[in-house]
């Protein structure tokens, strides 16, 4: 007797998030990115449609990063000192789907850059690139509330994805993002209950469901990956079963997490048995990312061009079914 696979039936789909606007749509992007829309668990094409493949955003900082390992900085080259050149390189050379501009220089403990300088970086990056943009703040609520609404306004019409809002601080940025026609990243600390609650709070402010991305926060391989994975899987199962307040695409800052791991950045001189740090770091980021692809992540924010290439090829293979 032939083996018959059990197929699940789902009643709901993940919402479709659109990032970027072309000239005709009031922006200046060469193309737009659509993500989400899944009608089944990841890559189970026989259970429902998966209309959009997972996409890769490459992280660009407004300031030269001071805590990135050499394996990472050398892969990007001298452009790492200039966010505009760095972003251009991500588009033309590394073939990223999106740029994720992190305004790290806004942090009061870092450069505490003035707002107009940060807004200028946003404008310059938009001018120099044609792919859609994600903007994230420095993570310090007060400063982000000051900086991000200005960036949102400066990017009006471009349908940027902006973040992040958290349960304790969501009103200021949500109001700006809503007014300027962008979408928002809702961050919860590996907690499905807070993820749902935050989405309710944001949508209570009239933000449409299809303009929200969930950042469930993740952990790198060896640093709680399984826990983050199971939270995402549970949220996605609830979404497909009808919970609209969890049915948004996931954005995963995998690069940020993977390159914090000691195993990704420790030098071979310190741990001779661990092998080449270059190969190790790339593998750590790529493996962390591919695990989250299987958990349902839609936007992968990555750092190393080589791991980007590996993951892109992997996605292509997976999407062939």
């Amino acid at each position: 007797m032939a083996l018959e696979l059990v197929k699940d039936k789902w009643v709901n789909a993940v919402s479709v998030l659109t990032i970027g606007a072309t000239k005709e749509e009031g922006g200046s992007r060469g193309r737009i990115v659509k993500c989400g829309g899944e009608e089944s668990l990841p890559f189970l094409f026989s259970e429902g449609k998966i209309p959009h493949r997972p996409v890769i955003a490459m992280e660009v900082l407004d300031v030269e990063p001071d805590d990135w390992p050499r394996t990472l900085t050398s892969a990007i080259g001298p452009a790492i000192k200039n966010p505009v050149e760095w972003a251009q390189k991500c588009e033309s050379e590394f073939k990223a789907d999106l740029i994720c501009l992190r305004l790290a220089g806004a942090h009061p403990d870092a450069q505490n850059k003035p707002v107009d300088q940060l807004v200028k970086v946003v404008k310059d990056v938009l001018k120099a690139t044609t792919i859609p943009l994600i903007i994230v703040g420095c993570g310090e609520d007060k400063r982000d509330n000051e900086v991000l609404p200005q960036c949102s306004q400066a990017a009006k019409g471009e349908k940027v994805l902006i973040g992040e809002v958290v349960q304790e601080n969501y009103k200021t940025l949500t109001a700006s993002v809503l007014a300027d026609g962008h979408s928002i990243i809702a961050q919860s600390p590996i907690d499905i209950n807070i993820a749902k609650q935050l989405n309710i709070l944001i949508t209570d402010m009239s933000m449409p469901l299809d303009r929200v991305a969930i950042n469930p926060t993740v952990g790198a391989l060896g640093y709680g990956l399984e826990y983050a994975y199971s939270i995402m899987e549970r949220a996605r199962l609830a979404a497909l079963s009808g919970d609209k307040m969890l049915a948004m695409p996931f954005i995963s800052f995998v690069g940020y997490e993977a390159w914090r791991a000691k195993e990704a950045k420790a030098l071979v001189l310190e741990f001779p048995k661990w092998g080449s740090e270059l190969e190790r770091g790339i593998t750590w980021e790529a493996l962390t990312t591919t695990a989250f692809l299987q958990a349902g992540a839609d936007i992968m924010v990555m750092r190393h061009p080589k791991s980007v290439e590996l993951v892109r090829n992997h996605i292509e293979e997976l999407m062939r079914g």
Binding site: K196, Q197, I200, L201, G242, D243, M245
Partner: peptide
């Protein structure tokens, strides 16, 4: 369904 602080509202909005 999944708990959140506003689960009663969330249910009614579905």
């Amino acid at each position: 369904h999944i708990y959140c602080d506003s689960y009663l509202d969330a249910y009614r909005k579905k």
